[in-house]
Design a protein around this nucleic acid. Structure first.
Lengths: 197, 197, 197, 197
DNA sequence: AATGAATGAGAATTCATTCAT
DNA sequence: AATGAATGAATTCTCATTCAT
């Protein structure tokens, strides 16, 4: 009935995911109806449920996509052959850049994660923990080597930095005065300065 | 079916607000029905609508309450007669302590603020900005005086710290290894260390 | 929208139950939509769900009503002060008469009982068993006294008779050649004849 | 996700029918989706619609199969060269045995017959009537010969016995204390005893 | 002989809110 | 100050069936 002869020729499931991401970021998960999603994607509800088991599945898919990207990038930075300060600085800045680059995904993540069913929530949390631990490992490594202050437990430092990362969704605007790279450098700098012995 | 004699003798509107706060924090604003609120408070819907114009009003009231408390406390710390490092450190720690003490309010704030109608959202954002600016003022004062590094724009520093504060709701557990005061001291310490010239 | 200014002034829940009974008997439980029920009752869906927790509740209410009537009547006949042959004959005939009188309820019962959720199904089955056992008691009493043949286990005899009773819904028509009373007498007669020593 | 290699090597249509029978008996016709049937049979929807015109067709096929079997057996027993009491007793017992042997088919028959479309319902009812009439013929023959009591109209007697037969699905369990044959003998015995002059 | 993407209509249920009392 | 019946619109999800391949 709607079907605005969408010019978008990407495969249906991909289109649905893209549309859902935008809408979830705009209005929130609970405030976005399946009807709105399928109308915006130019398909019918049946098509959506052909590819996704539920509205929650869509949400979970968005998370999984973001987690995959970030975990992979962190792993790469963490295993570089470089001094730990440099590896931490680059990883800390990179997560800012990719969070800004995937602004919608990240916003949805931080706002709507608790809306997942218990089963999927557990999965996501487990993945999140792996990420956290890898990051913490870098800090502990620097503390052990004496290049970072050990005044603050590494766990807290990770939460400090990721608090700032999560918060980006609330204030960063691409058309603001600072580029993503500049913000990333500043935030990484704050982290490293806080860790000076 | 309905609760006949509530053990809670606080005035009805207060009771409603307390119950709504707990439920919104637990399941989220959209996932909490007016029915659930009135059942948990042991009153009927008519009573709720007698005191509050709408479900949104409840949410707004929760925000206003938290904002009032935090603004008042920040004002107090900022105008102490003490060196700026000390005033900033105490303000930075205090917001952590009160955020943890009002855990439910804070969680609702960060998760559900965007669910307010545009009118009330504007009000809340204006108040929030006042708060942010007062905090930023402290940092700028220290930068001007040369006791804080000016390497990072004060705005960004504020967002860095408040990112961590918002994030508390995601990980802090009262029964964890650190007391609220300890976390507050650590986070204030990280902030001050990051600002060392 | 529909609201045909129903001339029916009975209380809403009673009206809903009456309408649902007719429709469930006509088309079957699964083939009757909540929409059809509320339209026929001249109310909205909200009203239905105000009084009944679910569509299943409606079904269960119909069962409970029939079970109450039949159990009560059986108890009355079984405890008369009369020879066991007479008590059994009257009880056996009475269940035929009330099954025909509550034709719709009975039809729904036999066709749709298995559609109840497991919890309510258990309740209904327990009540049904009580009924069965009371009836069986009469037969056993007569067998012990030697007035009924003991060639067939009493349980089987009960199932034989109630098979016929259930089956009434499939063939009895009020405008047929036999009145409810006549059918009842014939069926009770067949039972008693089968039990002659 | 789908069953790759079905251990069942029967022809597809036969497999579909077997699976549908089991599912319809378990959950009821309306509560069984075509999707469930094809998944359980290890084929796709296209395959089902290749062999059967509709879901209703499956139901009708199940009926037809049962009716064929029972009509054929009744015809055989009714035309034996033996006294009418013996022919009736054997026919009455046999329908019990075959009903138990085809438990699922019979359950579906009695519960879901009214869900057939009007056209197919007519066919099935016509077949059913033929069956009923043949059985009634035996009773009338006995009544005319004076070996059966004519106190009850033959029609009613048929319905009495078939009520019990239909009812089997509600209570008979293969792992219960009585074998199918024992139940059959008891029920036939009750019928013959009820018909004693 | 069989696939599987897609449809379109309809299912039960929920919910914030109103209003006569 | 408070009740509770009633609304009406929206919600997620299901399903039998079709059809190009």
């Amino acid at each position: 009935m709607a079907r605005m002869t969408s010019g978008d020729s990407r495969p249906v499931p991909e289109r649905l995911l893209a549309v859902a991401t935008r809408l979830f970021a705009d209005r929130g998960f609970d405030r976005t109806s399946v009807q709105e999603i399928v109308e915006a994607a130019g398909v019918t509800k049946g098509a959506l449920y052909h590819y996704f088991g539920s509205k929650d599945d869509l949400l979970h898919e968005i998370y999984a996509r973001l987690l995959r990207v970030q975990q992979e990038r962190l792993d790469r930075y963490a295993s570089l052959d470089a001094p730990v300060e440099q590896r931490l600085r680059e990883a800390a800045a990179d997560v800012v850049v990719t969070t800004i680059a995937n602004h919608d995904d990240a916003l949805i993540f931080f706002r709507s994660m608790h809306m997942l069913g218990p089963q999927k929530l557990k999965e996501v949390r487990a993945e999140r923990r792996r990420y956290h631990e890898r990051f913490r490992g870098l800090i502990e490594e620097g503390q052990a080597a004496g290049v970072f202050s050990a005044a603050t437990p590494a766990d807290l430092v990770v939460d400090y930095h990721f608090g700032a990362v999560h918060h980006l969704g609330s204030w960063y605007r691409p058309d603001g005065p600072l580029s993503a790279r500049e913000v990333a450098d500043h935030l990484a700098d704050l982290l490293l300065r806080a860790l000076r012995p």
